[in-house]
Amino acid sequence: MDAILFEKYVKEMDSSYKELWESGSNFISNGFGFCILKDGEFVSVCNTYYVKQGSAEIDITTSDKFRKQGFALITCLAFIEHCVKNNIKPIWDCDEGNENSKSLAIKLGFNSIENYQMHWWHENKKNIDGYLKKFNYSDD
């Protein structure tokens, strides 16, 4: 991804990246990502949520209409290849209810090494409610 695609991603897919990286140029200078586009529309995107101390956390998203077609696998493989070439340890992290993420991680060769309790906050309750519903959690 370049800075223009980063800004497009922020606008169309995940506005939280603006808060994380502040700008496309900062993302390109300090992070990285890979994507597949079809007719100018994001199919699958694999970005780093952070790069720190020689490691990078994988953040993957695939548009609903393109799921179960191998696109997430392709973008993640590009991400991991970049990490290996640059001596960066790729890190996979997902919550217990995200079966699709866990399945993809296994296909990519990741092993579960740790379970921990996650506390998540967002200022917009709709985001929280949507997340809890998506992964069949209650908000208790």
Score class of each variant (00 low, 15 high):
Thr62Arg: 01
Ser55His: 15
Trp92Ile: 00
Val84Pro: 00
Asp140His: 09
Ile80Arg: 05
Asn87Val: 00
Gly97Phe: 03
Ser63Pro: 15
Ile128Gln: 06
Ile60Arg: 05
Phe32Thr: 03
Leu5Gln: 11
Cys76Phe: 04
Leu37Thr: 14
Glu7His: 11
Ile91Thr: 04
Leu132Met: 10
Ile128Lys: 08
Leu37His: 14
Ser55Val: 15
Lys38Gly: 12
Pro90Tyr: 01
Asp59Ser: 13
Phe79Trp: 06
Ser15Pro: 01
Gln69Glu: 02
Ile113Gln: 10
Asn26Ala: 11
Gly24Phe: 03
Cys35Trp: 00
Leu37Tyr: 14
Ile60Thr: 07
Lys38Ser: 15
Met118Pro: 00
Cys83His: 07
Asp14Thr: 02
Phe42His: 01
Val51Lys: 09
Lys102Asn: 12
Ser29Glu: 09
Asn100Tyr: 09
Asp64Ser: 07
Lys65Trp: 00
Ile106Asn: 06
Ile58Gln: 07
Ala78Val: 05
Trp121Met: 15
Ile113Thr: 06
Gly31Glu: 04
Ile80Phe: 06
Leu77Thr: 13
Glu81Lys: 15
Phe6Gly: 01
Tyr137Asn: 03
Lys107Trp: 05
Ile58Ser: 10
Glu99His: 12
Gly40Ala: 14
Glu12Lys: 10
Gly24Val: 02
Gly33Asp: 01
Phe66Gln: 09
Asp95Pro: 08
Asn86Asp: 03
Thr48Lys: 06
Leu132Cys: 08
Glu57Ile: 07
Asp59Gly: 12
Leu77Cys: 11
Glu22Tyr: 04
Tyr50Met: 15
Gly97Arg: 05
Tyr9Ser: 08
Met13Pro: 02
Lys134Leu: 07
Trp92Phe: 10
Gly70Gln: 09
Lys126His: 15
Asn136Gln: 10
Lys52Ser: 15
Asp129Ser: 14
Trp92Tyr: 06
Lys134Ala: 10
Asn124Trp: 02
Lys107Val: 03
Ser29Lys: 07
Ala72Ser: 10
Phe27His: 00
Lys134Gln: 10
Asn136Ser: 13
Thr48Ala: 10
Lys68Val: 07
Tyr116Arg: 13
Tyr137Glu: 10
Glu96Gly: 11
Cys35Glu: 00
Met118His: 01
Lys102Thr: 08
Phe32Asn: 03
Val10Cys: 08
Asn87Glu: 05
Ser103Pro: 11
Ala56Pro: 10
Gly31Met: 03
Gly54Ala: 09
Gly40Cys: 14
Ser63Ile: 11
Glu7Ala: 06
Cys83Glu: 07
Met118Lys: 02
Gly130Ile: 08
Glu96Ala: 14
Asp129His: 07
Asn100Val: 10
His82Glu: 08
Tyr9Asn: 02
Glu19Asn: 09
Phe135Arg: 09
Met13Arg: 14
Lys134Asp: 12
Arg67Met: 11
Ile106His: 13
Phe66Tyr: 15
Thr61Met: 08
Lys133Gln: 03
His119Thr: 05
Phe135Thr: 01
Lys18Asn: 06
Gly31Ile: 02
Phe42Trp: 05
Gln117Glu: 08
Asp139Lys: 12
Thr62His: 04
Gly109Ala: 07
Leu20Cys: 11
Glu96Pro: 12
Asn124Ile: 08
Tyr49Ile: 13
Asn87Pro: 00
Phe66Glu: 13
Trp92Ala: 02
Glu19Trp: 05
Glu123Lys: 12
His122Ile: 07
Val10Gln: 00
Ile88Cys: 09
His119Trp: 05
